[in-house]
Design a binder for these strands. Structure first.
Lengths: 175, 175
DNA sequence: TTGGAAAGTCAACAAGGCTGACATAAACTG
DNA sequence: CAGTTTATGTCAGCCTTGTTGACTTTCCAA
């Protein structure tokens, strides 16, 4: 269409003297939007295939991922990170517990809380899923190089909602 | 967990003499994976809110976006880009046509084909949705700077499936 | 003229979101 | 101690958006 690379993109952006700011055109932004769409599909494709075999879905993967990342996490904390309702999470969690992939322990200090951990079997699946996803990311990182990866991380962090960035930053420390 | 920054990450990656390659550790890859997850949520959040008011969903947004991008596209082409079944797309397309946002015209050369275009009303909604999404991207780009944006694009392109990268590249030319 | 591609339709189903209502136990508070 | 809040779980029902399978209509092309 004729309206690309116009609009508000450059209007208020001439504050940085000297910089071209061509990376802020509507056209460049659209490229980024479409890249996010296509890349996210690739990003989830490999785990999705593995999960489909075991009749799990992306929701199970997300739960497994974050329980692995923050072992002993509570249901409430997981709810906050995943940004879904407790009913939605509970459905997923229930099947994972029934299937013996996740263990739910009553809290010691606060007996209302449930602390979640992966069982041996859960850790096995986590490893398969994360390795499949890492494989693609590793290839992408390798091709793009370290500077590109740094930029990739920077932009993604800026795209996040502030609240989600907090979660993201908190995950940084653990390991 | 104790298994981070080990495994296959560095094993076969010592070919580039001199380079540190620390950006290929499992830990860095995991950071990228989590960044993709959180960022994608932010990426879709603004359009999602607008769509919810009009009782449309993300699927409608995707259809509107790509019809806007490639006016007169056929159903089959759209199917290929979106990667869903024709039944799924058809349901979305039907409501958009019924609501007068999309126009479906029988092909001239090949009368089996339907050529899709946004109506005036469809273009209005497209503009609202894309501007909301661009606003966030623009802020992110501005904060991260041009070099980061270049890296962001590079890595995303590498994450895509080859077939999707072809679609992505073909969209580049049109404007 | 006939085979097959393109498009559309109907039915049925599943995953995974959502809301609302309600139950229980535990912790906290006045 | 009574009442309230918090954490969790569960039931029921709804929506969107994905799937498969079967079938029809249209119509291009060999």
């Amino acid at each position: 269409m004729a309206d690309s690379s116009m609009g508000g993109a450059l209007g208020g952006a001439t504050r940085s003297s000297g910089e071209t700011l061509l990376f802020l055109t509507d056209d460049q932004l659209r490229r980024g939007i479409e890249a996010m769409f296509f890349a996210y599909r690739g990003f989830t494709a490999d785990p999705d295939r593995i999960l489909a075999e075991k009749s799990y879905g992306r929701a199970h993967h997300r739960a497994i991922h974050f329980i692995h990342r923050t072992p002993g996490t509570t249901v409430n904390n997981l709810l906050d990170i995943l940004g879904v309702t407790k009913q939605s999470l509970n459905r997923v969690l229930r099947t994972l517990i029934e299937d013996g992939l996740v263990q739910s322990k009553i809290g010691v200090k606060d007996r209302r809380e449930r602390h979640l951990n992966l069982t041996e079997e859960g850790q096995e699946l986590e490893k398969i899923l994360s390795e499949a996803q890492r494989k693609r990311m590793r290839a992408a990182y390798r091709e793009a190089g370290p500077e590109a990866v740094a930029g990739f991380q920077q932009v993604l962090q800026q795209i996040m909602d502030p609240k989600m960035r907090t979660h993201f930053d908190q995950l940084k420390e653990g390991s």
